[in-house]
Deep mutational scan, measured.
Amino acid sequence: NITNLCPFDEVFNATRFASVYAWNRKRISNCVADYSVLYNFAPFFAFKCYGVSPTKLNDLCFTNVYADSFVIRGNEVSQIAPGQTGNIADYNYKLPDDFTGCVIAWNSNKLDSKVGGNYNYLYRLFRKSNLKPFERDISTEIYQAGNKPCNGVAGFNCYFPLRSYGFRPTYGVGHQPYRVVVLSFELLHAPATVCGPKKST
């Protein structure tokens, strides 16, 4: 009989979020998941679920829940969905086509923008091939755009693969920082350890 609540607040209220190319993952297990707390949290810009209804989450049990978190621009949030393409979905964070879970995003301009620009948040701009679902690539190898080998030196046709967002408070909404948490639900042939409040007695 599990009684402790799942530590969703640790994920959602973290002081610093990860850059999207180096997205953070927390495994959540052996706890009671009260999703209504999240669902009623006012400032969400997006709360979209795939393969599961957000209002039914509290009735369900899962083997594991993974909480992935990172920061992207407002106009990139739409790429955090199954079957998407674009710089983020291709080179930074890719969801599987059969994704079961929820994508939760909110504007973090007050936290993550600075006058003069916040350059701490990076994304991958160049990559030889697209990421596989949930693949994480933190390499900083110089990207070779031409035929000539770069030998690890940036220059003509040789690019550092990461780019900084440089968030400023005055940017338009599409270019403002958004914090994103992706909850993915794993249902294995194993005992369920993460259940909603109704199922955990």
Rank of each mutant, 00 (worst) to 15 (best):
N1L: 06
I2Y: 12
N4V: 09
L5Q: 11
C6T: 05
C6V: 04
F8A: 03
F8W: 08
D9T: 12
E10L: 07
V11N: 02
F12R: 01
N13C: 02
N13M: 03
T15F: 00
R16G: 07
R16D: 12
A18R: 06
A18F: 04
S19E: 04
V20C: 04
V20M: 02
W23G: 04
N24H: 11
R25N: 03
K26S: 07
R27A: 09
I28V: 06
S29Q: 11
S29A: 11
N30G: 08
N30M: 02
N30L: 02
N30P: 06
C31F: 05
C31V: 05
A33C: 08
S36Q: 10
N40D: 11
A42Y: 08
P43I: 03
P43T: 06
F45M: 14
A46M: 15
A46F: 09
F47P: 04
G51V: 01
S53W: 05
S53H: 11
P54V: 13
T55M: 12
T55Y: 12
K56Q: 14
L57V: 05
C61N: 14
N64D: 09
Y66N: 09
A67Y: 04
I72D: 02
I72Y: 01
R73T: 08
G74L: 02
G74T: 01
S78R: 10
Q79S: 05
Q79D: 04
A81Q: 07
A81T: 04
P82I: 01
P82E: 01
G83L: 08
T85L: 05
T85Q: 10
T85W: 04
N87S: 12
N87R: 13
I88W: 01
A89G: 04
A89N: 03
Y91L: 07
N92P: 03
Y93C: 01
K94F: 00
K94V: 01
P96I: 00
P96V: 00
D97K: 10
F99T: 00
F99K: 00
T100G: 01
C102Q: 00
V103H: 00
V103G: 00
V103A: 00
W106Q: 03
N107D: 05
S108G: 05
K110G: 13
K114P: 07
K114N: 13
V115P: 15
V115K: 14
V115E: 15
V115C: 08
Y119T: 15
Y119R: 14
N120W: 07
Y121K: 06
Y121F: 12
Y123E: 06
R124M: 02
R124N: 04
L125K: 15
F126D: 13
R127I: 02
R127D: 05
K128F: 07
K128P: 13
N130S: 13
L131K: 02
F134D: 07
I138L: 13
I138E: 14
T140Q: 10
Y143S: 08
Q144A: 12
A145P: 08
N147D: 15
N147Y: 11
N147S: 14
K148N: 12
V153K: 15
V153A: 14
A154Y: 09
F156W: 12
C158G: 06
F160T: 14
S164D: 08
G166R: 12
G166E: 15
T170M: 09
T170Y: 10
G174W: 09
H175I: 08
P177Y: 04
P177D: 04
R179M: 03
R179I: 03
V180C: 07
V182D: 00
S184W: 13
F185D: 03
L188F: 11
P191Y: 07
P191D: 14
A192E: 12
T193G: 10
V194H: 11
G196F: 09
G196H: 10
G196Q: 10
G196M: 09
P197Y: 15
S200L: 13
S200M: 14
